[in-house]
Design a protein around this nucleic acid. Sequence first.
DNA 1: AATTAGTTTGTTTTGCAAACCAACAAACTG
DNA 2: CAGTTTGTTGGTTTGCAAAACAAACTAATT
Lengths: 406, 406
Amino acid sequence: MDPKRKSRHVRITSINSSVVRNINRSIILDAIRVHQPISRSKISLLTRLNKSTVSSIVDTLIADELIAEDIDRNKKIGRNPINLRVKKGIHIVGAISIDPRSTIVAVVDIDGTVKASVTLRTEANAPEAFIIRCLEELTALWKKFPSHYFNGIGITVPGIVDSLHSTVVFAPRLGWEHVDIGRIVLGHDPSIDAVAVENDARACAVAELVFGTQSINPANYIFLSVGAGIGAGIVVDNRLLSGHSHAAGEFGHMIIVENGEQCSCGNLGCWEMYASDRATVRRYRALKNIQPGVKANLCLADVVAAAGRGEPEAVEAVKRAAYYLGLGISNIIRAFDPEFIVIGGRITQCWDILAPGISETLSTCGFLGTRTSAVIVPTSLADNPPLLGAAALSIRKIFTDYKFAL
Amino acid sequence: MDPKRKSRHVRITSINSSVVRNINRSIILDAIRVHQPISRSKISLLTRLNKSTVSSIVDTLIADELIAEDIDRNKKIGRNPINLRVKKGIHIVGAISIDPRSTIVAVVDIDGTVKASVTLRTEANAPEAFIIRCLEELTALWKKFPSHYFNGIGITVPGIVDSLHSTVVFAPRLGWEHVDIGRIVLGHDPSIDAVAVENDARACAVAELVFGTQSINPANYIFLSVGAGIGAGIVVDNRLLSGHSHAAGEFGHMIIVENGEQCSCGNLGCWEMYASDRATVRRYRALKNIQPGVKANLCLADVVAAAGRGEPEAVEAVKRAAYYLGLGISNIIRAFDPEFIVIGGRITQCWDILAPGISETLSTCGFLGTRTSAVIVPTSLADNPPLLGAAALSIRKIFTDYKFAL
DNA sequence: AATTAGTTTGTTTTGCAAACCAACAAACTG
DNA sequence: CAGTTTGTTGGTTTGCAAAACAAACTAATT
């Protein structure tokens, strides 16, 4: 990409011609991404930009090898359009998805294709050394694609992340506090200028926008990540909500039962204590009368598998999870009134048990009886949503330089 | 104002020079509003717009009589700046605040001064006739200010409002459903082109931004309106959240107690059943052992008055309200992670009892022990927040033509 | 000939940079 | 001490560059 293009994502206080160009460029590139294949003419109609303006900007996009022409002949009357598509196999991004157990390092094409990946055991007790290790693995992968443009790295972490400063504020499950990933990456290799660090659930929300097959209207939409904890990525008007201290959407510690079970956070009755994977496993153990200590490494995958076989205790455990998920989701709907809620996590593998349970709870929590509720769907992202999320963080920067509304 | 200026608040799909001008104009006008008095030179530094650009735009603002020059001499070195201020006594807006009991119709200056007002008894059973009645009252008031520019009408309604279509979707306390206020106003007087209808709590949130004295950072902020029900206006990145079906922030029916008290909405354990004014009055009656039927019109004002006198039962009733308010607020903080939560409603009159109770509950719901929480403050708006909200809806349109982010 | 796609040319709007003018205070000067 | 010089800040003028636009043009197809 043209290195003369100034660093984007800077604080804009007013509009000048260069900002105008960049915004319109983003608008056109995004229109191509969403509507591809599309002709210059159609873009002009869609964006209300003048045909000549579209042509001029499209020229720069072709020069940057972000899009490619593709003359296909159709039988319509008039001159055949020159179709424009996002160019694959040219621009790649690095993606690192950190989880308490394992970390995946990958190289991803801008259409979401994982071109290469390695899985590492997470060494959380030495964050800096571990992140550098990941970067070295990434460099090794990247070297396999010498003819590609490298467009930055996206990193997802389960915890509270200050994405503006690329810093992990607090990640209890990793034991990390104030880990400045941006500084570590730049210290390791000053040539890497584009690092995006984000909470895993939020990155999933971005991925669902960038890659998701369910054509989600980006207006109001929440990605709910159900795992060991419960987190969420909230998208409002195409923008990711981050909150004043980067903790928006930390629904796991929403109080759902007054004076309920003691949570590790110190509160009573947190949602996590009732609807997380751990809660489901605990409930399953109780239903099966498995004593503590016995089958200590029983995990949600086992419950899901058992439910798949139709085992009554497992089905019941999932149904109870569905009930409590529904309870919390009803509160989320009250708060945000989203159009969609996309649920991610292993438990979505028994969607046929989960979905009716959630719906039933929501129907008894029907708001004022008449309101339409949000549509609840499982994630459409392939095997590893957080990894695609990490990739999406960087890819979105390519497509949308400027967030602007209305 | 120059009638040649094109209708604002239209859907923008791309940027052209006229959009640039309008955005920069809004930026400058808003800078003047927030930092007044301020010189052209300071605006240039603040906005990074060129001095000549600032001068040129300021000229148009002066021509539109939105701002005025004000040469005051100070002792600093160098040429004395020409201070710019928002011009008062020239531009006015109409404000109508509809409540189940009474409706206030007013003419408000752009600095928030109520210049004239009338209070009507709300005739909710005939919405169209009643709204026309309000418009006639407003016209009568408006005629008292013949030399002023009239900048549109803002209307607040307790209920779910589609502000884009100026329609009341559902207002149970008024018994209104699908009342197209925009159509009614236009049908009555086609010359009125600027009508803004909004939910009362949301309008208050806007008012707090436009008039509020506590210099609120508009990034993340929630106005919580506690009354017969509980509603909220949520501001994120300077933008009002409205939700997919215009019901974002309808916290009153958030479930706070599993299998709790039966609410009129059909659910069990809604927040309103524990923290609204009605709940407080009910609790007070119970504490005082007042039988049903006796003192039937006892209302929150009485409880507040009693608490002010230090009556133990009243103090206890307010304390219980504070506890439940804190419980719900903790969930709101989890969801939005706001910087401020501003509380409005009659109960804030006993802030000295309320605030410690809320804080205490929040401290026991401390998120992961280490996180900073939102700042809870009472509203700074004068006597009638919803009326100022209604005015703020129209005033904001004058100051901020385009909502744009980053 | 009709139709649709895309380019070229010249114009308009806008913001920008630099030089300029304006107004003031403090220091300096005869 | 009056007048002048210097420095500093505020605001305007002038010419220019970047961008989008409109309209006329070319291109390719039925």
